[in-house]
Write a protein that binds this DNA or RNA. Structure first.
Lengths: 193, 193
DNA sequence: TTCATTTTTTAACTTAAGTGAACGAAAACA
DNA sequence: TGTTTTCGTTCACTTAAGTTAAAAAATGAA
């Protein structure tokens, strides 16, 4: 289980046995059941998550409707906004599937950064990388239509379309569930002819 | 000019005179004329930018049309995707106004991180902060209509609407210039009644 | 398995964005 | 200065998304 994490880290830096032990001793690995809510709107929390296996999502409730804005699957991490700005959360986080993840706080990170400056370096690189990837994602979203976004997702993250309910995918694509359903029918119709 | 940068940094960490001198000696301050293109599609570059005064934008050319996806103004920084993944750039960067900015490379950063680990810490915090802010932005974009997005921009970045041409704003809002024009007319009409 | 609940699809209608074209105003250029 | 682009707006028309409602399908629990 923790090997999933170490394999991921090894793509960036090599860890000594001591360092691995230090990570394990933090006791950050958690197993959560599908449907579990990790964070609620209005709550304050210091927990950041990194998904080792499974899938979690962030969502808002706007006018009584759930709006799913992001999914995090294998080897994707999330530090909620409320952790960064120390304010109550604007959104919910919950498990789409049974999920294994790590849970860490800024305090734990700070402590480990002092012992192992390497870790802070790793975190800087990871978050810069993520930021750039994120920007590209946003750019693609802005410059394409809902239909193009769906086709794009079909290419880049076909797994998501399988593992996630349609109505959650719809808001992820910035549209209503009915529109997604119609859009898919339209695509199938096109491919038939 | 460099005081703008030091004032910004001082919100996060305090700098000794030595550290300030080290930054100044890197000779990273540049002044660029409106319209100057800093990066072209297809180019490889190692330059990251931080705007001290003025405004720059990133844009794609898709089917011969400019699509502006982001603006960076005072105290906002940008490390282009091509710097991170060492591939040719997918987009252009150019100056919306006469702009004063810093230009840095990963090599310069790496060097300074060795001399002053504080700097790496600062960069980690900044990019984590930016990432969280970015996510909220994207969430707002996904969960709102073009009209809401425009009204939201009017609240949060009224300066942008003044300093940036309409057709660039339109793609930033994910729509066509004609739609932005119509949408604005619609809003004015509503406020009249 | 059955029943209740949730999710997805379908349909009719409304609203708004995309498209193509035209026009005047402003800006850039020589 | 006049000329040429570029820019913003408007219009008519097309296309697609939002809305409301209902039916069909899938899921989960008893």
């Amino acid at each position: 289980m923790q090997d999933l994490l170490f394999d991921f880290i090894s793509k960036y830096i090599s860890l000594t046995e001591d360092e691995k032990k230090a990570i394990v001793s933090l006791d950050i690995f958690r197993s959560v059941k599908k449907g579990t809510t990790l964070l609620k709107e209005g709550e304050k929390s210091n927990d950041g998550y990194f998904v080792l296996k499974g899938c979690i999502r962030t969502y808002y409730i706007i006018d009584g409707e759930e709006k799913t804005t992001a999914f995090y699957t294998e080897m994707e991490g999330l530090t909620p906004h409320c952790v960064i700005n120390k304010a109550p959360s604007e959104y919910y986080i919950s498990c789409v599937e049974d999920t294994i993840l790590t849970v860490t706080t800024p305090e734990m990170e700070a402590e480990s950064f002092i012992k192992f400056p390497k870790f802070e370096s790793l975190c800087r690189v990871l978050s810069e990388e993520l930021l750039a990837k994120h920007q590209i994602n946003f750019d693609e979203f802005k410059t394409s239509s809902p239909e193009q976004r769906y086709l794009n997702l079909l290419q880049k993250r076909p797994d998501l379309i399988q593992r996630v309910p349609q109505h959650q995918l719809a808001s992820y694509l910035g549209i209503k569930p009915q529109s997604l359903s119609r859009l898919r029918a339209r695509i199938i119709e096109k491919n038939k002819v």
